[in-house]
Simulated assay, not measured.
Amino acid sequence: MFELGGDGPGAILVGVDGSETSLRAGSYAAGLARRQGARVVVLFVHTPPGAGILTAGLIEVQRQAQATVVDELRAEVEHHARLLGLSFAFYERHGNPYLELIRLADELRVDAVVIGASMRAGHRLVGSLATRLVRDAKWPVTVVP
């Protein structure tokens, strides 16, 4: 049985980290949401530092850098959402980006996930966040180059 008026996504989750591909993913999600009348859910995941840089000073530098990126992203999202007349929510989580994207998608029952493709060379060999989401997700996943 088909639902009347339920022919498109109601909520689109997009993962952003400040990279060029994540910003393109955000733009793509905003355009899709505008055309479909959907809500955009933006997620930034604060990632812990790598094991090789576990000094207090470097941890603080990374924390401050991520906080700056979040502030800039939040302002940009708010500005563009206002211009496009979009409904949006901005979330911050801490931990593993893959797990946090899945958790938030499940919590909010989103209809689609948009993510930027990884530009790291090593991800071609061991896989990337986008590859794992496409393989494991319960919702449509769009990977933006």
Rank of each mutant, 00 (worst) to 15 (best):
L4V: 11
G6A: 13
D7E: 08
G10T: 06
G10Y: 02
V14Y: 01
G15T: 05
E20D: 15
R24V: 04
Y28P: 01
A29H: 02
G31W: 09
L32V: 10
L32G: 01
A33P: 06
R34L: 11
Q36G: 03
G37V: 07
R39D: 04
V40E: 00
V41W: 02
L43P: 00
F44Y: 15
F44V: 05
V45I: 01
V45R: 04
H46T: 01
T47V: 14
A51P: 12
A51L: 13
G52A: 14
G52V: 10
L54Q: 14
L54K: 08
A56S: 13
G57P: 00
I59Y: 07
E60W: 02
V61F: 12
Q62A: 14
R63I: 00
A65S: 13
Q66F: 06
A67R: 15
A67L: 14
D71N: 12
E72H: 13
L73T: 07
R74Y: 05
A75T: 10
H80G: 00
H80I: 10
R82N: 09
L83P: 00
L84R: 11
S87G: 08
S87I: 03
S87V: 11
A89E: 03
H94D: 11
G95P: 10
P97F: 11
P97L: 08
Y98N: 09
E100F: 09
I102A: 13
R103S: 13
A105K: 07
D106N: 13
E107H: 07
E107T: 11
E107W: 01
R109L: 05
A112K: 12
A112C: 08
V113N: 02
V114E: 02
I115G: 01
G116M: 03
A117H: 09
M119H: 10
R120Q: 11
A121E: 15
H123P: 00
R124V: 06
R124Q: 13
V126W: 08
L129Y: 09
A130D: 05
A130E: 03
V134M: 08
R135H: 14
R135W: 10
K138Q: 14
K138P: 01
W139P: 04
P140F: 10
P140V: 07
T142S: 13
T142Y: 12
V143K: 08
P145G: 10
